[in-house]
């Protein structure tokens, strides 16, 4: 499978329709790489003309900014915007809600103006347009699913329906957790918490959320964020349920169910 970088496309005098912003988790984290691969596979199957930045991509600066390091954030933003503007990027799709939020909401006032789409919305559109067709007996047809809202997709950007519509396409039972949509409970990774230990307390946040997810009795916990995915998977392992309950990204669910 061939995945072009922007540099390669430029060299061939080609312009992609969209840039796939992979994000640091999607690039480096072994679990999140699977989400990246699943999404890239979908794009390839549908022959969508896209490119990645490859080695030229860099952290958007989200964890730096949210931990309080505005200097580092501005450095990263400056460099990324230089590259994106240099390639004349118009539309970006990303599988990470944190990258999505930064690119969409925080880069414009720094000079980076792009149409930014999260893969939940992107997949929803492809399904609606009939471009993605799912198998009748896909691997999840007998499994009920519970969707975990990512804070940076939900409360931060009001995207609640798109991921649910993607899951509805699987035609399996969707069970909501007690705290869902705008009341959804954080997985514990946001605000640069992913990169440090929890502060002193009596429980880890991801355990609290995992318990709630397990209460639904769903066999699949669906997420749309690589960090939520890691946090929930850690929670499931902590509860020794990894053989009964799967934590999967919506892209993985779709990729495995596509014709």
């Amino acid at each position: 499978m061939k995945i072009n970088t922007m540099a390669e496309m430029m060299a061939n005098n080609e312009t992609p329709d969209i840039l796939f912003w992979v994000g640091c988790a999607g690039s480096f984290d072994a679990r999140a790489q699977k989400i990246t691969k699943a999404f890239a596979t979908i794009l390839n199957k549908l022959s969508i003309k896209y490119a990645i930045l490859g080695k030229e991509e860099a952290c958007t600066g989200d964890p730096a900014r949210r931990s309080g390091n505005e200097f580092l954030f501005q450095m990263m933003a400056y460099n990324n915007i230089q590259i994106l503007n240099g390639y004349g990027i118009k539309k970006i799709v990303t599988t990470c809600p944190h990258c999505y939020n930064t690119l969409k909401n925080e880069y414009p006032e720094l000079g980076g103006n792009y149409e930014v789409v999260h893969h939940a919305t992107f997949l929803e559109q492809l399904i609606e347009e009939g471009k993605i067709v799912l198998k009748e007996d896909h691997p999840f047809s007998e499994k009920n699913i519970s969707y975990h809202d990512s804070c940076y997709l939900g409360r931060s950007n009001n995207i609640y329906d798109a991921p649910r519509k993607v899951l509805e396409a699987l035609k399996t039972e969707l069970i909501e957790m007690k705290r869902c949509r705008s009341n959804g409970l954080c997985c514990g990774a946001g605000g640069a918490q992913m990169f440090k230990e929890d502060e002193k307390g009596n429980k880890r946040i991801n355990i609290e959320r995992t318990e709630e997810a397990l209460e639904t009795g769903a066999k699949v916990i669906a997420a749309a964020c690589p960090f939520c995915n890691t946090m929930l998977l850690d929670g499931i392992k902590n509860k020794e349920k990894e053989n009964e309950v799967a934590v999967l990204d919506i892209a993985e669910l779709i990729e495995q169910s596509m014709i």
Binding site: I3, T5, V22, C24, G26, S27, F28, D29, Q33, T36, K37, I52, G54, K55, E57, A58, C59, G61, P63, A64, S67, N69, L72, M75, M76, A192, M194, F195, K196
Partner: peptide
């Protein structure tokens, strides 16, 4: 995390050269 972002452009201590290894 800060020094990783500065040096490797990612919050982990992993070389920027391996960013597209997943391909």
């Amino acid at each position: 995390m800060f020094s990783s972002i500065e040096n490797n452009f990612a919050p982990w201590k992993l070389s920027a050269d391996t960013r597209d290894n997943w391909i």
